[in-house]
Every structure is written in C-alpha cells, then in structure tokens.
Amino acid sequence: MTHNPTNPTQHSLFQKVEQVRRRRAKVRDATITLAHGSGGKAMRDLIDDIFVGSFDNPLLAELEDQARVSLAELIAVGDRLAFTTDSYVVDPIFFPGGDIGSLAVHGTINDLAVSGAKPFYLSCSMILEEGLPVDALRRVARSMKAAADEAGVKIVTGDTKVVHRGSADKIFINTTGIGVIRPDVSISARNLQPGDKIIVNGYLGDHGAAILIARGELSFSSAIESDSQPLNSLVDAILDVCPEVRAMRDATRGGLATVLNEFALSSEVGIRLYESSMPVREEVQGICELLGLDPLYLANEGKLAVVVPSDRAQTVLAAMRAHPTAEKATIIGEVIDSPQGVVLMQTLFGTERIVDMLVGDQLPRIC
C-alpha cells in the first residue's frame, strides 16, 4: 500500500506512526538487567531515555554508529588536534563534591586543556553491572550533562555494555575527548628551563581525602569535598596572558609529586619546592598525618601545575587568582640546574629532602 495523503484514514495512521517515532522511549525497570545490553528494544529504550534524554544534543540524537562533526569548526581554532581517553572506576560512585559522571567529564576535559587545547567533543562508554539502580544511572548521566554544559563541550557518541552481577562494581565509564590546540602555544614536559617558576591553582589533596572519607571505612567527620572541576576556562585565562607557558598538567593519580617528577625527568632538570608555600588544608594535612599519607601524592581532580618563565610568573599568578577556580593559586617552587631528574623539598626547618615518584598506590580506585 502506498501513502495517499488525500486518504483521511491513511493520513491519520501515518501521523500516529510519526508520533510514535518521535516519542522518546522510557525505561520501566527499576534496575539494570542483562537485556539492557542485548542490542534489542530494552537497550534502545535505555539509550533513548537515559543518554539521549540527558545529553540532549543534535549530534547524538542522530543515533548513528559515529558522531559526524564539522572540520571547519575545528580548523577555525587551530591546526593541531588533541585526542585523549581515560577510564573511571572510582569507589564510591557518589561522593562529596561530585560523582563518577562529573569526574569522567572533568578529567577528560582537563587532559585536553593542559595541552593548550580548546575541548569540543566527548564520547562516553559505560560498563554497567546487572542490578545497578536505573535512578543511579540517570543521576550519573544528568551529572555528566551538567558538567559538559559548564565546560562548553558536547557528549556526541558512546556505547553501553552490561555485565553479570558481580563482574564489575556498579558502573565503569570511559570518556574520550577531542579538542584543538591554540596556534601560539607549545606546551610540553620537555620545555622546562632553570629559573622557571611552578604554580598550582589551589589546595592539594582534597579529592583523595574526600574519597577516603566517603568510603566510610574510618570514623572521620569532615566537610572536605572533592575539587573535581573543569579547568579549560582557567587554562584560557593563563594562555591569554602567557602563551609562553612551558609545561602544564593536571595532578590526578599520583598527585603533584608524580607530575613534577615527570617534568624533571623529561626536561633533565631539577625542581626545588618550598614546604612553606604548599597549599594544603589543615583537615587534609591532619588526615594524612593520622594515616601516614603525604598530601603531595594524593589525587586531585581540579588542580594543575603550570611552569612559566620567571619574568611571567607574577602576571600568570594574578590572572589565575582572578579566576574562580584558582583564587588560592600559589608559586610553590622553581626549576634548577641540578640534580637532574630530581625533585627536592626545602622543609620548614631549612633542610632538603627528596620528593620521589610514588611507588605503589596510596589509595586505589580514586578516579
């Protein structure tokens, strides 16, 4: 039968078909089942309701096997593509200051930003455990949308898999991001030169401490929240006043100490830090002293270390402190000739100690 628009009955039928096609599906189950990963209607309903409904942008709504983006939009910003991926297995999935969803978005955006790139698009792949409450998944997806909107990026493609109960732990997320690097910057861990200054944008170790408390394994009572936040706007502010930034990196797993050791090794220089300048909350310092931890190795999810020429340090510091994500920005150290590949700490007592790279893991499943 062909469609005859002059036939009232047939016209009404086709209107109803179109309405059904446009109507967004709804997940009726209270928990994730294996059917939600089967590729059938249950999976389609999950994608349409939770992900398309939450992320809500035209590129994703096409529901193709790939996102199709405009090269012209990217080329207008620069001629170098930044491409990164990361996976998130944090436990618990909800914690003070964020959740696994916002963390996944912030982490990938920040990995792009510290290369000098403007982030544009993210993918999102999820591994879900059978039995995960659908409301928890919906909450995570909405959190991802809010985090992406705050940073000005879009989640445009993804994938969903479901595994048997006990084969995972609630939800694991992989996010991949692409951005375009500014034409006037060349940021690399190999660029450090003696005399350069090292700046961080605020308190260290908040994320690690917040996760530790959220696990409820210790009888701590504290209002510490994760510092999870997007840093692309802050990086823009830094590069606007100092395109000559030598190196920049967000201090996530392994903390600030690991980042600075990587810088020292890559550039074959030394680094001297000043304990008196380290921005660490009293509560975080207290937790670390009780548990034998070092805040320099605790994970951060909204902190970066930036290395700039000495004569640009005060300009950069002022620009950072004017930004809401870096009001506590501080110069914490400098690059020195030697010993090469070594990070030193000048202590409060005037002595020096070596700040080595983290061996093992102070706190697993932190991000």
Rank of each mutant, 00 (worst) to 15 (best):
A209R: 00
A141I: 00
L60R: 06
I47Y: 00
T160Q: 07
T85M: 12
L128W: 01
D169S: 14
N174H: 07
N7H: 09
T176G: 15
S221L: 11
T9P: 00
G341P: 05
I171G: 05
R246P: 00
V180H: 11
E352S: 15
E301Q: 15
S115K: 12
G39H: 02
V153I: 07
A237C: 09
G152F: 10
I199M: 01
A326D: 05
S87Y: 08
I155M: 14
S266Y: 04
E275F: 12
F120C: 04
S188M: 06
V89C: 13
I127P: 00
D86H: 14
G286M: 08
A322E: 12
V77A: 13
L13W: 10
P96C: 06
R272C: 09
Y297Q: 07
E327T: 10
M357H: 14
L128F: 02
M144W: 02
L304G: 04
A151H: 04
F14P: 00
V269W: 01
L239C: 05
C288T: 04
L363E: 05
E130S: 03
R139V: 14
V284I: 05
V156R: 01
L231D: 04
S228C: 10
L132N: 10
Q340I: 11
D206C: 15
P243V: 07
V308A: 01
I199P: 00
D206E: 15
A319E: 08
C242I: 07
E327Q: 14
A322W: 06
N174L: 08
R321T: 05
E327K: 13
E64Q: 15
D91I: 15
L290Y: 05
T315R: 07
G39D: 04
V162H: 00
G208P: 05
I354G: 12
L290I: 14
S276M: 10
F220Q: 02
D91C: 15
P279E: 08
Y297K: 09
A25K: 11
E282D: 12
L290V: 14
T85F: 13
G255E: 02
G179H: 02
G216M: 02
Q285P: 00
I224T: 11
G116K: 02
V69H: 09
A151T: 04
Q340N: 06
G270E: 05
M144I: 01
L74T: 06
R165W: 12
T258R: 13
D196S: 07
A117M: 02
K303C: 08
T6K: 09
L71E: 06
I238N: 01
N232S: 14
I224G: 04
A72N: 09
A136T: 15
L218N: 03
D169Q: 13
R246I: 09
N191F: 08
L63V: 03
M43E: 14
P295A: 11
L234F: 03
K170S: 03
V69E: 10
A35L: 07
R165A: 10
D356N: 14
K154D: 06
V20S: 13
T258Y: 11
A35Y: 00
R353L: 12
R138D: 14
L256W: 06
L46Y: 04
K41E: 13
R24S: 06
